[in-house]
Design a binder for these strands. Structure first.
Lengths: 216, 216
DNA sequence: AACCGCTCGTGAAACATTTCACAAATGCTC
DNA sequence: GAGCATTTGTGAAATGTTTCACGAGCGGTT
């Protein structure tokens, strides 16, 4: 069903297309052209068609794409037709915001446990969950059959925690700690680094006028 | 001082290099090779040298880079040798976590106001700030001389808010709302979409074994 | 002061991604 | 059912990014 290697940029766009397809779906639209989708997603129609073409031909020439059918295809391609069991490692404010974040749940990501080192936080109730001692990490990963970890800790303990997660069987990690995690082959890591985002904005602000003029 | 167009990927790596340089600085290291920096940042030495070469020659052949000097250069390149005045638009849990996030402050980003629509939240004290009515957006942007907005709202109101921000003079936005914002030329937008990150992980999990085997 | 081991800076080559442009397919109209 | 207006799917071209490979410069050693 699929080709050698798909660019990360393509996969990200597919996720974005899916979001807009579901919006259109909710608005009762049945059919959509690559042009309309591209406009919404901030890209070009050729890009949309090329991205989809890696996985098959889902459109009708002269007409466009069936909104429901394409949404279903994209959910299938992205692996969103199942649920994932997520462990949150770290119980700071960002972790709290993420646990509440409805987008995760709607997309099939269920937080099944929250771990923390700080004794003051262990035992707190978070929605239906109780914050557990990070010492029980291995036990929790196994008992809860965790698919995916979200790492929301300071930089320091991150590598040690990811080692333990991997040893316990976790094979996918969303990492908010500002370190480059070392993991064995076969384990997927995605990094989100808010400071980097701000700093690229800072760069853009500083260099904004470097189109034409250039002076000291 | 600078070339035509620098790739976003390069700028992001510069921000990452800077983080590790500052770590090494704190550990008392004086000199660092492109190889050592690359290892820490998860890339290659050639990449490090190429990234830096767009902006000048900062190293000493045979030796490597002076940690302090290179950190200073990177801060200058990234525009981090000044402070930015940030307005937070939206006062949900994620906004709360971001306001607390020490990384922002350390890097020179000062949150000077928090705006919100929900009357229940207006008037709350957040650290040294009071959550204000979003109706005062224009007044606050001007009085506080805001450089940069962080948009942490649902998708629906995002475009309208960004229009008002831009009209009031804001020229850089970090957007957490899951929409593709339309802005005029000269306004910088960076999108952070946590759902997209999770979905690319989901894709990676699903397609992990597509290296060799391929069956229906 | 000549040599040696190391590491930078950088064109050129390799690789990856996006854009172009057009044939083929579809529905609609007459 | 022929003609027309659309819109897809896709090789090929253009563009962008990373990797390679090597000349040049630096510090230390004899």
């Amino acid at each position: 069903m699929l080709p050698r290697k798909i660019a990360d940029s393509t996969v990200r766009r597919l996720a974005i297309y899916l979001r807009f397809l579901e919006e259109f779906e909710a608005q009762g639209a049945d059919t959509l052209s690559s042009k309309a989708l591209a406009h919404r997603a901030g890209t070009t129609s050729a890009q949309v068609r090329k991205d989809l073409s890696f996985f098959g031909s889902f459109g009708k020439r002269g007409l466009g794409y069936d909104v429901h059918a394409l949404a279903r295809e994209l959910r299938d391609i992205l692996g969103l037709n199942r649920r994932y069991r997520v462990i949150m490692v770290g119980a700071g404010r960002l972790a709290g915001a993420l646990v509440q974040f409805s987008g995760f749940n709607e997309r099939g990501f269920d937080v099944v446990a929250v771990l923390e080192k700080d004794p003051a936080k262990i035992g707190q109730r978070w929605g239906g969950l109780v914050v557990e001692d990070v010492r029980h990490l291995e036990k929790v990963v196994k008992q809860q059959r965790v698919d995916l970890a979200i790492l929301v800790t300071p930089a320091d303990p991150a590598q040690g925690l990811v080692d333990r997660l991997v040893a316990a069987g976790v094979t996918a990690v969303l990492n908010f700690a500002p370190v480059q995690l070392q993991v064995p082959e076969g384990v997927e890591v995605k990094n989100v680094n808010l400071a980097v985002e701000l700093e690229t904005l800072s760069y853009a602000i500083k260099h904004r006028s470097d189109n034409r003029a250039e002076s000291a």
